[in-house]
Write a protein that binds this DNA or RNA. Structure first.
Lengths: 197, 197
DNA sequence: ATTCTCATATAGACACTGTCAATATAATTG
DNA sequence: CAATTATATTGACAGTGTCTATATGAGAAT
């Protein structure tokens, strides 16, 4: 109990993070301003600087946490699976797409290079881990294909990201976006299965 | 010559557009502010409102012009081609990818739903035309495939957009991004050829 | 205990931003 | 020439991030 309220406000860093995430979900990244977050947290607009050196640092922390969550979700679902590379790749793909549609603002933040620090070491590290999961499965899938595993991994991730991002932009909503009840996202993944089944 | 200088400043709307585009290329969308654009154009900060009702309208106009240029580029290159659907699809894909890497800030603006009016009728119209080019070729490519032409079109566009967007985010730069000299983007397209060759 | 030091919080200032209202001026129309 | 409309200016307002000076809390050193 010695560490319960380490300072004036308490665990302000955590509070700022939580408040910022709530604002991100509700209003998008543009709603995550230092002053609004400080207000929600009940502190002055100058307080956050002690925990996040600027707005970019705060948003980068949010983004990193999302990549962490995505990776954790992937690993959890992979652990419950057998060794069929095709099924494992499909799980990774589904996890990514689900995350994007479930948390649109969080997902968009991940790729907003103007808002977050794209050179952040921890951020890149988590991204590498996710990329690694894909590569691992593709290398197991079947050796001796026309392209190397990196090309398949990049292509699949590109397709997933592109579909989610364009849909979230709200400028890409094909009229007939379902095929016999299933969303086209599912078909996109099915189509890509050609390469790993 | 009666319309040469229709008003005080001259063709301010055009000047604003050009200045804004220059700022977009140089500083990104965040550098395209009403006040900065007005300053570059040599007018007061209140002048632009007569030609673009707000910042969003200005950015939307920029975006629309880019979609127009992209479509025109595609059509020009298609016109020089024979009837081989595979080659025509590849031309469309290359045109899109080239545009993204050549004008990164313009490309990113196209999908920034928080900056432009994604419901703008003209904008959607141009997008539909581009989408239509893809669908047309896929429908000619070969009937009776596993998926409908829309799925192929969406999948290809998703893959192209995803690859370009992730690369432009500067957070997705696989270590080994060339295959025997050719950029991976080329391999991505080659990989997708499976579906139309 | 008292002092020292550092971490943290506050308050104010500055230069930006978009947008609006009031005003002025230019061009067109009647 | 008068009236109207389109355009441009200016000033204001509420925001924004970030910086500086100042104040305060908390733990360590003496």
């Amino acid at each position: 109990m010695t560490q319960l309220k380490p300072f004036h406000h308490g665990d302000l860093k955590r509070v700022l993070f939580d408040v910022a995430l709530a604002r991100l979900d509700e209003h998008g990244a543009s709603g995550v301003t230092i002053r609004a977050v400080a207000k929600d947290a009940g502190v002055s607009h100058g307080a956050p600087v002690n925990h996040y050196k600027d707005r970019r640092a705060l948003l980068t922390a949010l983004a990193k946490a999302q990549f962490d969550a995505l990776l954790a979700g992937i690993d959890t679902r992979l652990a419950e699976l057998d060794d069929d590379p095709g099924a494992r790749i499909e799980i990774i793909a589904s996890a990514m797409m689900d995350f994007g549609f479930r948390y649109p603002h969080r997902y968009r933040l991940l790729w907003s290079a103007d808002l977050i620090d794209h050179a952040d070491a921890e951020l890149l590290s988590v991204m590498d881990s996710i990329y690694d999961r894909l590569c691992t499965e593709f290398s197991k899938a079947s050796p001796g294909r026309e392209f190397d595993k990196d090309t398949y991994a990049v292509a699949l991730w590109s397709m997933l990201h592109g579909y989610v991002d364009m849909r979230l932009s709200r400028m890409f909503e094909p009229l007939n976006d379902s095929i016999s009840g299933a969303p086209r996202g599912k078909a996109i993944i099915d189509l890509f299965k050609v390469f790993f089944e």
